Simulated assay, not measured.
Amino acid sequence: MVKKNLLLAEDDELLASLLDYRLQKGGYNVHLANDGRDVKEYLKTATPDIIVSDIMMPYFSGIE
């Protein structure tokens, strides 16, 4: 089975760590982004299969 690449955008460190752990155990390659700026930078060089995003983050919202 090919692992899916997942971008996890979450500014709460504890929640991000828990989600990262569970998603990796579920078979995903997880890239963490701490805020909207990190998301934009990551998307300049990569295209994830899935994006899981917090809605309220610094700099850019999860909706933006």
Rank of each mutant, 00 (worst) to 15 (best):
Y28D: 14
G36L: 02
A16V: 00
R22H: 12
V39P: 12
N29C: 14
L7C: 13
K4T: 02
V39K: 05
L23D: 11
R37G: 04
S53W: 04
V2L: 06
Y28T: 04
K40T: 07
L15P: 00
I63Y: 08
K3N: 04
Y21W: 05
Y28S: 10
V30G: 00
E13V: 13
M57Y: 03
L8A: 01
K4S: 15
H31V: 10
A9C: 14
A33F: 03
A16M: 00
E13G: 09
S61C: 08
S17W: 07
N5Y: 04
M1H: 10
N5D: 10
R37F: 12
Y21V: 12
I55K: 12
P48D: 01
Y21E: 12
M56K: 12
K40D: 05
L7W: 10
L23N: 14
N29A: 13
P58D: 13
S53H: 02
A46W: 07
Y59K: 15
Y42G: 06
S17Y: 07
D20T: 15
T47G: 14
K3Q: 11
M56Q: 10
G36K: 02
V39F: 05
G26V: 08
I51S: 03
K40Y: 10
L18H: 12
D38Y: 09
I50C: 00
M56H: 11
L7Q: 15
K44W: 03
L6T: 04
H31F: 12
E10G: 03
M56P: 05
I51M: 07
L18Q: 06
S53P: 03
Y28R: 14
D35S: 01
G36S: 02
K40N: 07
S53L: 08
L18A: 10
K25I: 05
Y21K: 10
E13C: 10
H31G: 04
E41K: 14
S17M: 06
D11G: 13
Y59T: 11
D12S: 09
D11Y: 13
D20M: 06
K3D: 11
Y21C: 14
I55L: 10
D38K: 07
Q24A: 02
V30F: 00
L19T: 03
E10I: 06
